[in-house]
């Protein structure tokens, strides 16, 4: 993990280490992100985003995109999403929901809470790598964020 002052380009919040590793491997392989922060539950993610808890004193610089898993211990992805999107300081951060579930209520809820994208993780590894690298490419390289971030 890189905790320097450098800009965090992607914040990956994923409790499953295999998924996280595959995602990071895919992004690295495509040279999309230099600075990826991987956190394993919602509580850590919120501490990181709002510079609290173990992340107190972290420079207040928002990541370029948050890749957020929904089903996590302690604080779920939906709660993280709600808190991020209801706070003025963080509501401009693009949030991409990554999940195994294609269930309707989750998709609906996520968009209502302000998610910018909703991706169902494909079972096949090829598809998974393609999906992750595509979204990384889009949000980090193509997408123009707010000027102040």
């Amino acid at each position: 993990m890189q905790m320097e002052n450098a800009v965090v380009e992607i914040l990956l919040v994923e409790d499953n280490p295999s998924d996280a590793e595959m995602a990071i491997r895919a992004l690295r392989k495509k040279h999309i992100a230099n600075h990826i922060v991987h956190l394993e539950d919602g509580a850590e993610a919120l501490d990181f985003i709002f510079c609290s808890g173990v992340f107190t004193g972290r420079p207040v610089i928002n990541p370029k995109v948050i890749l957020l898993d929904l089903k996590m211990p302690k604080i779920g992805g939906l709660e993280v999403l709600r808190r991020v999107k209801s706070d003025e300081r963080t509501n401009t951060i693009p949030v991409v929901v990554l999940t195994s579930s294609a269930e309707d209520p989750d998709i609906q809820t996520c968009y209502k809470l302000g998610a910018n994208s909703y991706i169902v993780k494909p079972v096949g590894f090829d598809n998974f790598v393609k999906a992750v690298s595509d979204l990384g490419f889009y949000w980090v390289l193509l997408n123009q964020g707010p000027k102040d971030s």
Partner: peptide, 21 residues
């Protein structure tokens, strides 16, 4: 079924992914 869709797929993806890696 939600659990099935969510939880059963994750290990499968890992099996496939790690085999590929």
């Amino acid at each position: 079924t939600y659990s099935v869709s969510h939880d059963l797929r994750t290990p499968l993806r890992a099996i496939d992914g790690y085999a590929r890696m």
